[in-house]
Design a protein around this nucleic acid. Structure first.
Lengths: 289, 289
DNA sequence: CCATTGATTTGTCCTAGACAATGTTATAGT
DNA sequence: ACTATAACATTGTCTAGGACAAATCAATGG
C-alpha cells in the first residue's frame, strides 16, 4: 500500500494528475486510510505504469481509461513487438550476477564497438525497459546490467586531441543516461571528443557550460517525457541564444516525427550518427587524430 | 521568474509546504501572473535556499521566518565557519577548466589516497556546497569538479578478491553520490570490496539486492533531507528484515546526534571508518588479500 | 490536400480546511 | 534539581471541488 506522494514519485505522474484522473475517469479507486488519505494497491500501480507507458507512446488518457486493464495490456503487447534477440533476453532473465560483465565483454569482442552499440546495446535497453514495465526484471538485476554496461562503454571512449568537442546532455530531468552514453560512444568512434553532462542542467546554464568547456557542438537528447512541442520550443530558443558557430544536434524519442529548424541537425536514430558526423565534422576541417 | 513547481523541484520543498508557508508566515509573497499563479523572483529563491539550509541545520521554520533575510544570512555565516584551506578555495573559484584534473591529481600524489579523501576532498565538498548556496559556484564548474573527482576516486578503488563485500547506498532520493563514493574509497583502502548503488532504491528491494550481489554488509548514508526519526525507524525495520549475518553500517548527517540500535554500527564521521573496519572486519576472519 | 476555426480534453494551479506527527513548555512527582 | 507526564504549539501533507490555458481533435472552407 502506497501513498499518493510515493506513487507520484515512482511513476513520474503529478499528484494533482492522479487525483484528477480519479475525479474524471473513476480510476484508479484507491482505498482510504482512517484519515481519508488515498492508499494505492500494487495492482493499481502496475496498471498505472502501463497507462503511463501507453501514454508516452502517443495514446490519449480518454481512450486509455475507456479500456479495461486487460485491453490496455493487450494494446501494449500489440504495439511493442517483441523483436528481441535470444542473447539479449538471456542476459536480462537468466545470467548469474558474476557472469554479466563477462558476457557483455564477449559480445563487445565479437561485434566491435559500433555493432555492439547498434545491434546489442540498443535491443538490450529495449528489453530492459520492457522487463521493468512488467516486473520481470528486478531492480537489482537492472542496476547490475546498467552499471556494467556503463563501465564498459565508458572504457570505449577514445581520448582525442584535435577533434570537435561535443557536449552531451538532456534538458528535462530524466535518467536517460544510458541512451546518451550510447550516442556519445558512436560520436567518439567517428572522431569526436565527447563530454557527458548527465545531471540535469537548467536551460539558462547551457551557455555558461559551453563557454567553460569550449565546445564546438552540443548534442541534446529529448526523452519521452518531453512533448515534441516543448522540444521544438526549447531548441528554437537555444538556437537563438547560443553563438552561431556552435552546432546543435538534437535527438531522442520526442523528435520521432521529425522537425525542421534552421541550424539544428536532427538525428532520430543512432544509425544516422555515422552520416551525421561525416556531414557536420568533415575530416578536412583539420582534425587529424 | 519561476513557477511553484519549478521552485519546489529546485529546492526540494513540497509545493504544499511553499503555499502553507505563505499562508502562515506571510513569506514568501510571490507575484502572480494573470491567472493568479505564483511567480517567484530570484531574490525569493535565494532566501528560501538559505532557509532550507538553516532548517537542515536544525532550526525550526517559526524562528527562521521571524527573522529578516539579512539576519538569516548572518545566522548562516555564524553557524558555518569558513574553515576552508587555501588550495581548496582556489580550486573552487579560480582554476581554469583544463587544469582542474591536473590539480586534483597533484593533491592525490602528495597526500596519498586516505589523506586526500579526509583532508582535501571533504573540505572541497564543503566549500562547493557553500558556493552552490551563495551562487559563487557556477553549475558548469560544479559539474566539472564533481566529475573529475568522481573519475579520480573511482580509479582508486582497488579490486579485492577475498574480502568483505559492502554495498553502499542511500535510502531516500538524494544525489549524495560524492559523499558515498568518498566513504567507499576509504572502506576499500581498509580491505573491503565495495559496490556502489547510486540510484535510489526502494527499501523493499534492498533484500533482493543483497542476495543478488551476495554482500556481507550494507552501508547506508542518510542525507540531510532525512529526519533522524525517519532514519532510526528505517534502520530498525531493516535490521529486523535483513538476515542476521548481514552487517549494517549507518552514516550521514541525519545521524549526527548518535543513535544506539543493536546490530547496527554507526559512523558519523569519515575519520571513524578506519577503526570501524578494524572492528567489524578483522583481518583474522580469513580475508587475506 | 492544407489552413482556420470551434469544441473537447488534459494537466496544473488555486483556496481553505483538516489532522497526525513532532517538538516545546509547564506541571507534578521523586 | 532533575525526570516523567500532560497540555499546548508547530509543521507538513493530505482533502475537495473549482478554474483555466495549452494542447489536441473535428469540422469546415479554400
Amino acid at each position: 500500500m502506497v501513498t499518493i506522494q510515493q506513487l507520484s514519485q515512482e511513476l513520474g505522474i503529478g499528484v494533482d494528475t492522479l487525483r484528477v484522473w480519479e475525479r474524471r475517469f473513476g480510476f484508479p479507486t484507491p482505498e482510504r486510510n482512517a484519515r481519508g488519505h488515498r492508499l494505492y494497491s500494487p495492482a493499481e500501480i502496475d496498471d498505472l505504469r502501463i497507462i503511463k507507458k501507453l501514454q508516452n507512446m502517443g495514446h490519449r488518457p480518454k481512450q486509455l481509461f475507456a479500456l479495461s486493464a486487460a485491453e490496455r495490456m493487450e494494446l501494449l503487447n500489440q504495439q511493442q513487438p517483441d523483436d528481441s534477440h535470444q542473447d539479449v533476453q538471456y542476459l536480462v532473465t537468466t545470467v548469474a550476477a558474476s557472469q554479466v560483465e563477462k558476457e557483455l565483454r564477449i559480445q563487445l569482442q565479437q561485434r566491435g564497438v559500433e555493432a555492439f552499440v547498434l545491434e546489442f546495446a540498443v535491443p538490450l535497453l529495449a528489453v530492459m525497459d520492457r522487463g521493468w514495465l512488467t516486473g520481470e526484471l528486478s531492480i537489482a538485476r537492472e542496476h547490475l546490467l546498467s552499471d556494467c554496461l556503463t563501465v564498459i562503454l565508458k572504457e570505449q571512449l577514445i581520448p582525442r586531441k584535435v577533434a570537435p568537442k561535443v557536449i552531451f546532455m538532456t534538458l528535462s530531468g530524466e535518467r536517460h543516461k544510458l541512451g546518451l552514453l550510447l550516442s556519445a560512444v558512436l560520436f567518439n568512434q567517428h572522431g569526436c571528443e565527447c563530454h557527458l553532462v548527465l545531471e540535469e542542467l537548467p536551460v539558462a546554464e547551457i551557455n555558461a557550460m559551453v563557454d567553460f568547456l569550449n565546445a564546438d557542438a552540443i548534442a541534446l537528447s529529448f526523452s519521452v517525457q518531453t512533448t515534441p512541442r516543448q522540444a521544438k520550443q526549447d531548441l528554437a530558443w537555444l538556437r537563438k541564444t547560443l553563438p552561431k558557430h556552435l552546432k546543435i544536434i538534437a535527438g531522442g524519442f520526442a523528435l520521432r516525427d521529425g522537425l525542421h529548424l534552421p541550424g539544428i541537425s536532427v538525428c532520430t536514430d543512432l544509425d544516422q550518427i555515422s552520416s551525421l558526423c561525416a556531414r557536420e565534422f568533415p575530416k578536412s576541417a583539420g582534425n587529424q587524430n
